[in-house]
Design a protein around this nucleic acid. Structure first.
Lengths: 184, 184
DNA sequence: GTTGTATATATAAATATTTATATATTATAA
DNA sequence: TTATAATATATAAATATTTATATATACAAC
């Protein structure tokens, strides 16, 4: 799947692995993430099968950088994937919920600590979606050669993140009350 | 992480890989899933490092089955993991949201088809959480040697799933309207 | 001036996961 | 009565992902 994220970004304009990582971290990270090491591996594989080409650019003040450009084949791959219907639900992996599921044997104080910590983290994430993320989208819309349509879809994915974090916080509140209630 | 799910279930009572898969499919699947092949691999690894023991039981009408039992070391591992605070947010992977993010170049009709299909799937999933899942929890509470506390926590994870699916459907409705609106 | 952060890349090793394939039996449905 | 689904395992191969480590430069902050 990472493959298509890289093609998706490179379809706007050429970029290095490092830049792609930064773009991911300020956008798709919330619904798809990857480590830099994995990005380099995947870029190399994409070049090998002809979806990308690359050129090495020397820099005066920094190490050389490798700039990747999408090929017509890469664009075809991307469009094929975009058009192909998702027939299944995305599998979720939520460590905290999993832990809670098996926490009955645990000291209630220990699970409460974790629930409260996660509430704090998700609250921060919610604030990010409300305050920071809209600005990032606005700036991307200004900086990048793209249509208003792209920005509207990016905004829709941001709203997904915001709603999700709000849900998570409210569920945590409810769950903390439940666990607290089991004390007296 | 699968490791701890298996230990978590086996902490209630011994079971075979096949049974563990079934239990996962009717409970943790919504926040953690695994293929049967991976379960067998992980059970073997857990036995090798002393967290589980197994016995082979001959059956008259079915192939032999291997029954796994948790060891004190396995219980210690499980408790250690349960008590260890989750310091980070769980990374999300949502293919549909990802696709939408890159769908501006796509024929709007193609993304609309996918959004509507996913709305259907998430609606089904929502119905599952509302109608089927509570009964499964009730039956598990009747069948398994566990405390009311376990069932209460299981119910909390079910509520997470229900809320999540309701959110997803409402977000899809909103997003479908947005994309439809971009036509005229 | 030293420390930390950012730019830029890369590999090795470990772990995790999916897909495909194989075997063998039995109950159920068409 | 034939097909299929379900029970019960298991392995091979491919893919994906994380963690750890390495190198080298330069700018900014303290």
């Amino acid at each position: 799947m990472l493959k298509y994220i890289l093609l998706g970004f490179l379809n706007y304009q050429p970029a290095t692995g490092y830049e792609l990582k930064q773009r991911m971290d300020s956008s798709t990270t919330h619904f798809w993430h990857a480590k830099l090491s994995q990005i380099y591996i995947t870029l190399k594989a994409l070049e090998e099968d002809g979806s990308l080409t690359s050129t090495l650019e020397a820099q005066a003040d920094r190490p050389d950088k490798r700039i990747y450009t999408i090929t017509p084949q890469g664009q075809a791959d991307l469009h094929q994937w975009l058009a192909q219907p998702e027939m299944a639900l995305s599998p979720k992996k939520e460590t905290l919920v999993l832990k809670l599921f098996f926490s009955a044997q645990l000291d209630p104080q220990a699970i409460l600590t974790q629930l409260r910590l996660q509430r704090e983290l998700h609250n921060q994430q919610l604030a990010y979606y409300r305050d920071v993320s809209p600005q990032i989208i606005q700036q991307a819309a200004d900086d990048f050669p793209m249509l208003a349509k792209d920005a509207a879809l990016w905004e829709a994915t941001r709203r997904f993140g915001e709603k999700y974090e709000a849900l998570y916080v409210s569920w945590l509140d409810e769950t903390i009350q439940l666990v607290e209630g089991q004390f007296h």
